[in-house]
């Protein structure tokens, strides 16, 4: 049986440089969601968007929006009051 090799380096380390950075630290509802949506509209397919925020509900809701828009959620890191979310269009 032939050996199947899977290269997982990229999957383990999503260290792709962000194409668009959205800094909504200190912003509250609905600004983080809205700013992310604006960034997604500006992004080209394949672009990586990195979002910094401090609004706790948005940490849960941005991933919901990403799913609703059928985009890829690369990572959610940090605490509820200081987080980073990476999205790929």
């Amino acid at each position: 049986m032939p050996e199947i090799k899977v290269d997982t380096r990229e999957a383990q380390c999503p260290a792709v440089e962000a194409n668009i950075v959205v800094d909504c630290r200190g912003e509250t509802c609905p600004v983080p969601l809205v700013e992310v949506r604006k960034a997604i509209r500006k992004a080209a397919p394949g672009d990586v968007i990195e979002v910094f925020g401090t609004h706790p509900a948005s940490k849960k809701e941005i991933p919901m929006a990403v799913e609703a828009l059928s985009l890829e959620l690369l990572s959610v890191e940090g605490t509820d009051t200081d987080w980073t979310i990476r999205i790929q269009r």
């Binding site: 509802c29 609905p30 969601l33 809205v34 992310v36 949506r37 919901m64 929006a65 609703a68 828009l69």
Partner: peptide
């Protein structure tokens, strides 16, 4: 406006 913007943001 919050609900309207939320809806647009969620696609």
């Amino acid at each position: 406006l919050i609900i309207g913007n939320g809806a647009l943001a969620m696609g």
